[in-house]
Design a protein around this nucleic acid. Sequence first.
DNA 1: GTGGATTTACTCGGATAGAAAGTGTCCGAGTACTGATGG
DNA 2: CCATCAGTACTCGGACACTTTCTATCCGAGTAAATCCAC
Lengths: 133, 133
Amino acid sequence: MKYSKATNYALHTMLFLAAATPNKPVGVQKLAEKQEVSPTYLSKILTKLVKAGMIESASGANGGYRLKRNWENVTFLDIIHAIEGTASLFDCSLDHGPDCPIQQVVLAAEQKMEAHLRNQTMAELAQTHKIVF
Amino acid sequence: MKYSKATNYALHTMLFLAAATPNKPVGVQKLAEKQEVSPTYLSKILTKLVKAGMIESASGANGGYRLKRNWENVTFLDIIHAIEGTASLFDCSLDHGPDCPIQQVVLAAEQKMEAHLRNQTMAELAQTHKIVF
DNA sequence: GTGGATTTACTCGGATAGAAAGTGTCCGAGTACTGATGG
DNA sequence: CCATCAGTACTCGGACACTTTCTATCCGAGTAAATCCAC
Protein backbone atom coordinates (compact mmCIF):
# COMPACT_ATOMS: atom_id res chain seq x y z
CA MET A 1 0.00 0.00 0.00
CA LYS A 2 1.47 3.27 -1.10
CA TYR A 3 0.40 6.65 -2.27
CA SER A 4 0.75 6.87 -6.03
CA LYS A 5 3.33 9.02 -7.74
CA ALA A 6 0.47 11.06 -9.09
CA THR A 7 -0.30 12.16 -5.55
CA ASN A 8 3.32 13.05 -5.13
CA TYR A 9 3.26 15.22 -8.24
CA ALA A 10 -0.02 16.84 -7.28
CA LEU A 11 1.22 17.82 -3.84
CA HIS A 12 4.46 19.22 -5.15
CA THR A 13 2.72 21.15 -7.86
CA MET A 14 0.38 22.71 -5.35
CA LEU A 15 3.29 23.70 -3.16
CA PHE A 16 5.06 25.21 -6.12
CA LEU A 17 2.03 27.17 -7.20
CA ALA A 18 1.52 28.37 -3.66
CA ALA A 19 5.09 29.61 -3.54
CA ALA A 20 5.00 31.18 -7.02
CA THR A 21 3.57 34.51 -7.95
CA PRO A 22 -0.17 34.26 -7.62
CA ASN A 23 -2.56 35.01 -10.48
CA LYS A 24 0.07 34.46 -13.12
CA PRO A 25 -0.46 31.05 -14.73
CA VAL A 26 2.48 28.65 -14.77
CA GLY A 27 2.87 26.42 -17.82
CA VAL A 28 2.81 22.67 -17.53
CA GLN A 29 6.23 22.47 -19.09
CA LYS A 30 7.81 24.45 -16.32
CA LEU A 31 6.01 22.47 -13.66
CA ALA A 32 6.95 19.19 -15.29
CA GLU A 33 10.56 20.24 -15.64
CA LYS A 34 10.92 20.90 -11.94
CA GLN A 35 9.66 17.42 -11.10
CA GLU A 36 11.15 15.55 -14.02
CA VAL A 37 7.86 14.25 -15.34
CA SER A 38 6.49 14.37 -18.84
CA PRO A 39 4.28 17.43 -19.32
CA THR A 40 1.47 15.38 -20.82
CA TYR A 41 1.26 13.13 -17.84
CA LEU A 42 1.38 15.95 -15.35
CA SER A 43 -1.37 17.70 -17.26
CA LYS A 44 -3.55 14.65 -16.85
CA ILE A 45 -3.01 14.74 -13.10
CA LEU A 46 -3.65 18.45 -12.83
CA THR A 47 -6.92 18.02 -14.66
CA LYS A 48 -8.14 16.22 -11.56
CA LEU A 49 -7.18 19.14 -9.39
CA VAL A 50 -9.02 21.45 -11.76
CA LYS A 51 -12.14 19.33 -11.53
CA ALA A 52 -11.81 19.39 -7.76
CA GLY A 53 -11.85 23.17 -7.97
CA MET A 54 -8.43 23.87 -6.45
CA ILE A 55 -6.74 25.30 -9.50
CA GLU A 56 -7.83 26.53 -12.88
CA SER A 57 -6.25 26.27 -16.27
CA ALA A 58 -5.74 29.03 -18.81
CA SER A 59 -5.59 27.97 -22.42
CA GLY A 60 -3.62 29.57 -25.21
CA ALA A 61 -0.33 31.37 -25.22
CA ASN A 62 1.03 32.32 -21.80
CA GLY A 63 -1.47 29.88 -20.45
CA GLY A 64 -0.95 27.41 -17.64
CA TYR A 65 -2.26 26.58 -14.24
CA ARG A 66 -3.12 28.97 -11.47
CA LEU A 67 -4.54 28.67 -7.99
CA LYS A 68 -8.16 29.48 -7.48
CA ARG A 69 -9.62 32.02 -5.07
CA ASN A 70 -10.12 29.99 -1.94
CA TRP A 71 -6.95 27.95 -2.32
CA GLU A 72 -5.73 28.96 1.11
CA ASN A 73 -8.25 26.61 2.65
CA VAL A 74 -7.13 23.63 0.62
CA THR A 75 -5.73 20.92 2.85
CA PHE A 76 -3.46 17.98 2.18
CA LEU A 77 -6.43 15.70 2.53
CA ASP A 78 -8.32 17.58 -0.16
CA ILE A 79 -5.49 17.13 -2.62
CA ILE A 80 -4.98 13.50 -1.78
CA HIS A 81 -8.66 12.77 -2.09
CA ALA A 82 -8.78 14.53 -5.44
CA ILE A 83 -6.14 12.17 -6.80
CA GLU A 84 -6.65 8.93 -4.92
CA GLY A 85 -10.38 9.11 -4.51
CA THR A 86 -12.25 9.18 -1.24
CA ALA A 87 -12.74 5.46 -0.74
CA SER A 88 -11.60 4.20 2.62
CA LEU A 89 -8.48 2.12 3.02
CA PHE A 90 -10.23 -1.00 4.11
CA ASP A 91 -13.37 -2.87 3.16
CA CYS A 92 -14.17 -5.96 5.10
CA SER A 93 -16.13 -7.52 2.23
CA LEU A 94 -17.09 -10.47 4.38
CA ASP A 95 -20.37 -10.86 6.11
CA HIS A 96 -19.85 -12.00 9.63
CA GLY A 97 -22.31 -9.82 11.38
CA PRO A 98 -23.24 -6.24 10.60
CA ASP A 99 -20.17 -4.41 11.84
CA CYS A 100 -16.80 -6.02 11.53
CA PRO A 101 -14.60 -5.25 14.54
CA ILE A 102 -11.53 -5.35 12.35
CA GLN A 103 -13.01 -2.80 10.03
CA GLN A 104 -13.75 -0.54 12.95
CA VAL A 105 -10.19 -0.65 14.20
CA VAL A 106 -8.61 0.05 10.84
CA LEU A 107 -11.06 2.79 10.02
CA ALA A 108 -10.46 4.50 13.34
CA ALA A 109 -6.75 4.46 12.57
CA GLU A 110 -7.35 5.86 9.14
CA GLN A 111 -9.37 8.68 10.59
CA LYS A 112 -6.48 9.63 12.84
CA MET A 113 -4.33 10.01 9.78
CA GLU A 114 -6.94 11.96 7.90
CA ALA A 115 -7.43 14.29 10.80
CA HIS A 116 -3.78 15.20 10.59
CA LEU A 117 -3.90 15.72 6.84
CA ARG A 118 -7.05 17.81 7.13
CA ASN A 119 -5.28 20.06 9.56
CA GLN A 120 -2.46 21.03 7.29
CA THR A 121 -2.99 23.50 4.47
CA MET A 122 -0.63 24.14 1.61
CA ALA A 123 -0.74 27.83 2.37
CA GLU A 124 0.80 27.30 5.81
CA LEU A 125 3.47 25.05 4.42
CA ALA A 126 4.37 27.47 1.65
CA GLN A 127 4.90 30.26 4.15
CA THR A 128 7.10 28.21 6.41
CA HIS A 129 9.26 26.76 3.66
CA LYS A 130 9.29 29.42 1.01
CA ILE A 131 12.84 28.67 0.03
CA VAL A 132 12.55 25.03 -0.87
CA PHE A 133 11.12 25.18 -4.33
CA MET B 1 -4.43 3.57 -2.24
CA LYS B 2 -6.01 0.70 -0.42
CA TYR B 3 -5.04 -2.14 1.81
CA SER B 4 -4.87 -5.32 -0.22
CA LYS B 5 -7.33 -8.14 0.15
CA ALA B 6 -4.49 -10.23 1.44
CA THR B 7 -4.30 -7.97 4.49
CA ASN B 8 -8.01 -8.41 4.92
CA TYR B 9 -7.66 -12.18 4.90
CA ALA B 10 -4.69 -12.12 7.23
CA LEU B 11 -6.46 -10.00 9.82
CA HIS B 12 -9.58 -12.12 9.74
CA THR B 13 -7.61 -15.31 9.99
CA MET B 14 -5.80 -14.03 13.03
CA LEU B 15 -9.05 -13.05 14.66
CA PHE B 16 -10.49 -16.44 13.96
CA LEU B 17 -7.48 -18.25 15.34
CA ALA B 18 -7.56 -16.06 18.40
CA ALA B 19 -11.20 -16.96 18.96
CA ALA B 20 -10.71 -20.68 18.26
CA THR B 21 -9.43 -23.29 20.62
CA PRO B 22 -5.76 -22.60 21.14
CA ASN B 23 -3.06 -25.17 20.48
CA LYS B 24 -5.21 -27.18 18.14
CA PRO B 25 -4.22 -26.42 14.56
CA VAL B 26 -6.93 -25.29 12.17
CA GLY B 27 -6.72 -26.48 8.57
CA VAL B 28 -6.40 -24.04 5.71
CA GLN B 29 -9.56 -25.41 4.17
CA LYS B 30 -11.67 -24.46 7.12
CA LEU B 31 -10.12 -21.01 7.30
CA ALA B 32 -10.58 -20.50 3.58
CA GLU B 33 -14.17 -21.66 3.71
CA LYS B 34 -15.10 -19.06 6.30
CA GLN B 35 -13.72 -16.27 4.15
CA GLU B 36 -14.62 -17.65 0.75
CA VAL B 37 -11.09 -17.71 -0.58
CA SER B 38 -9.25 -20.51 -2.26
CA PRO B 39 -7.21 -22.52 0.25
CA THR B 40 -4.10 -22.32 -1.88
CA TYR B 41 -4.14 -18.57 -1.97
CA LEU B 42 -4.83 -18.24 1.72
CA SER B 43 -1.97 -20.58 2.43
CA LYS B 44 0.31 -18.29 0.51
CA ILE B 45 -0.75 -15.37 2.65
CA LEU B 46 -0.43 -17.27 5.89
CA THR B 47 3.09 -18.25 4.96
CA LYS B 48 3.99 -14.61 5.45
CA LEU B 49 2.52 -14.64 8.93
CA VAL B 50 4.50 -17.77 9.69
CA LYS B 51 7.71 -16.10 8.57
CA ALA B 52 6.83 -13.13 10.73
CA GLY B 53 6.62 -15.52 13.67
CA MET B 54 3.00 -14.95 14.60
CA ILE B 55 1.64 -18.37 13.78
CA GLU B 56 3.12 -21.74 13.00
CA SER B 57 2.08 -24.45 10.62
CA ALA B 58 1.72 -28.16 11.32
CA SER B 59 2.18 -30.47 8.36
CA GLY B 60 0.50 -33.78 7.76
CA ALA B 61 -2.87 -35.12 8.70
CA ASN B 62 -4.77 -33.02 11.23
CA GLY B 63 -2.32 -30.28 10.44
CA GLY B 64 -3.05 -26.62 9.99
CA TYR B 65 -2.17 -23.27 11.47
CA ARG B 66 -1.90 -22.38 15.10
CA LEU B 67 -1.00 -19.28 17.04
CA LYS B 68 2.47 -19.10 18.50
CA ARG B 69 3.38 -18.55 22.14
CA ASN B 70 3.57 -14.78 22.36
CA TRP B 71 0.65 -14.12 20.05
CA GLU B 72 -1.11 -12.03 22.65
CA ASN B 73 1.33 -9.23 22.00
CA VAL B 74 0.73 -9.20 18.26
CA THR B 75 -0.78 -5.90 17.16
CA PHE B 76 -2.70 -4.91 14.06
CA LEU B 77 0.34 -3.07 12.84
CA ASP B 78 2.45 -6.21 13.09
CA ILE B 79 0.03 -8.12 10.92
CA ILE B 80 -0.32 -5.36 8.37
CA HIS B 81 3.41 -4.92 8.14
CA ALA B 82 3.86 -8.65 7.66
CA ILE B 83 1.63 -8.55 4.61
CA GLU B 84 2.10 -5.11 3.13
CA GLY B 85 5.72 -4.60 4.03
CA THR B 86 7.10 -1.88 6.21
CA ALA B 87 7.78 0.74 3.57
CA SER B 88 6.27 4.11 4.29
CA LEU B 89 3.28 5.41 2.37
CA PHE B 90 5.10 8.24 0.74
CA ASP B 91 8.48 8.80 -0.86
CA CYS B 92 9.20 12.24 -2.13
CA SER B 93 11.66 10.96 -4.76
CA LEU B 94 12.52 14.48 -5.79
CA ASP B 95 15.57 16.36 -4.67
CA HIS B 96 14.62 19.83 -3.64
CA GLY B 97 16.63 20.18 -0.53
CA PRO B 98 17.41 17.52 2.05
CA ASP B 99 14.08 17.19 3.79
CA CYS B 100 10.90 17.64 1.85
CA PRO B 101 8.25 19.45 3.88
CA ILE B 102 5.52 17.53 2.11
CA GLN B 103 7.12 14.26 3.06
CA GLN B 104 7.28 15.36 6.66
CA VAL B 105 3.59 16.17 6.78
CA VAL B 106 2.46 12.93 5.21
CA LEU B 107 4.81 10.85 7.31
CA ALA B 108 3.61 12.49 10.49
CA ALA B 109 0.06 11.63 9.50
CA GLU B 110 1.04 8.06 8.76
CA GLN B 111 2.63 7.75 12.16
CA LYS B 112 -0.61 8.82 13.80
CA MET B 113 -2.34 5.96 12.06
CA GLU B 114 0.37 3.48 12.93
CA ALA B 115 0.26 4.51 16.55
CA HIS B 116 -3.38 3.54 16.66
CA LEU B 117 -2.77 0.22 14.94
CA ARG B 118 0.13 -0.53 17.24
CA ASN B 119 -2.12 -0.02 20.21
CA GLN B 120 -4.67 -2.64 19.29
CA THR B 121 -3.91 -6.31 19.77
CA MET B 122 -5.88 -9.18 18.29
CA ALA B 123 -6.14 -10.70 21.74
CA GLU B 124 -8.11 -7.75 23.05
CA LEU B 125 -10.38 -7.74 20.06
CA ALA B 126 -11.04 -11.45 20.30
CA GLN B 127 -12.13 -11.10 23.91
CA THR B 128 -14.48 -8.23 23.22
CA HIS B 129 -16.11 -9.74 20.16
CA LYS B 130 -15.97 -13.44 20.82
CA ILE B 131 -19.30 -14.03 19.16
CA VAL B 132 -18.62 -12.63 15.76
CA PHE B 133 -16.73 -15.42 14.09
C1' DG C 1 -2.03 52.72 -38.38
C1' DT C 2 -5.90 49.53 -38.29
C1' DG C 3 -8.38 45.27 -38.98
C1' DG C 4 -8.25 40.72 -40.13
C1' DA C 5 -5.74 36.53 -41.08
C1' DT C 6 -1.92 33.65 -39.76
C1' DT C 7 1.40 31.87 -36.73
C1' DT C 8 2.72 30.34 -32.35
C1' DA C 9 2.49 28.64 -27.76
C1' DC C 10 -0.08 26.74 -25.00
C1' DT C 11 -3.89 23.38 -22.64
C1' DC C 12 -7.53 19.57 -23.16
C1' DG C 13 -8.98 15.01 -23.45
C1' DG C 14 -9.51 10.56 -25.59
C1' DA C 15 -7.07 6.44 -27.18
C1' DT C 16 -3.56 3.53 -26.47
C1' DA C 17 0.28 0.95 -24.58
C1' DG C 18 3.66 -0.65 -21.29
C1' DA C 19 4.84 -1.81 -16.43
C1' DA C 20 3.97 -3.26 -11.97
C1' DA C 21 1.39 -5.06 -8.30
C1' DG C 22 -2.33 -7.83 -6.66
C1' DT C 23 -4.95 -11.97 -7.01
C1' DG C 24 -5.53 -16.48 -7.90
C1' DT C 25 -4.58 -21.47 -9.77
C1' DC C 26 -1.90 -25.69 -10.56
C1' DC C 27 1.04 -29.12 -9.34
C1' DG C 28 4.93 -31.71 -7.42
C1' DA C 29 7.07 -32.51 -2.95
C1' DG C 30 7.26 -33.26 1.78
C1' DT C 31 5.22 -34.63 6.32
C1' DA C 32 2.59 -36.82 9.83
C1' DC C 33 -1.18 -39.62 11.16
C1' DT C 34 -3.93 -44.02 10.19
C1' DG C 35 -4.69 -48.50 8.98
C1' DA C 36 -3.33 -52.81 6.87
C1' DT C 37 0.01 -56.52 6.31
C1' DG C 38 3.18 -60.01 7.57
C1' DG C 39 6.11 -62.21 10.72
C1' DC D 1 1.56 -58.47 19.39
C1' DC D 2 4.68 -55.57 17.02
C1' DA D 3 7.23 -53.59 13.27
C1' DT D 4 6.95 -52.12 8.73
C1' DC D 5 4.79 -50.49 4.75
C1' DA D 6 1.27 -48.31 2.03
C1' DG D 7 -2.49 -44.91 2.00
C1' DT D 8 -4.47 -40.62 3.19
C1' DA D 9 -4.96 -35.95 4.54
C1' DC D 10 -2.83 -32.35 5.09
C1' DT D 11 0.79 -28.16 4.33
C1' DC D 12 4.71 -26.05 1.55
C1' DG D 13 6.51 -23.49 -2.08
C1' DG D 14 7.66 -22.56 -6.80
C1' DA D 15 5.84 -21.55 -11.41
C1' DC D 16 2.49 -19.73 -14.01
C1' DA D 17 -1.61 -16.91 -15.59
C1' DC D 18 -5.07 -13.43 -15.11
C1' DT D 19 -6.73 -8.83 -13.68
C1' DT D 20 -6.44 -4.38 -12.23
C1' DT D 21 -4.16 -0.23 -11.37
C1' DC D 22 -0.59 2.93 -12.27
C1' DT D 23 2.29 5.29 -15.31
C1' DA D 24 3.23 7.20 -19.45
C1' DT D 25 2.94 8.49 -24.45
C1' DC D 26 0.77 10.08 -28.77
C1' DC D 27 -2.00 12.94 -31.31
C1' DG D 28 -5.88 15.70 -32.91
C1' DA D 29 -8.63 19.62 -31.29
C1' DG D 30 -9.40 23.92 -29.20
C1' DT D 31 -7.89 28.54 -27.44
C1' DA D 32 -5.76 32.87 -26.85
C1' DA D 33 -2.00 35.96 -27.42
C1' DA D 34 1.39 37.76 -30.66
C1' DT D 35 2.75 38.66 -35.26
C1' DC D 36 2.23 39.72 -39.98
C1' DC D 37 0.15 41.67 -44.03
C1' DA D 38 -2.85 44.20 -46.90
C1' DC D 39 -5.35 48.30 -47.20
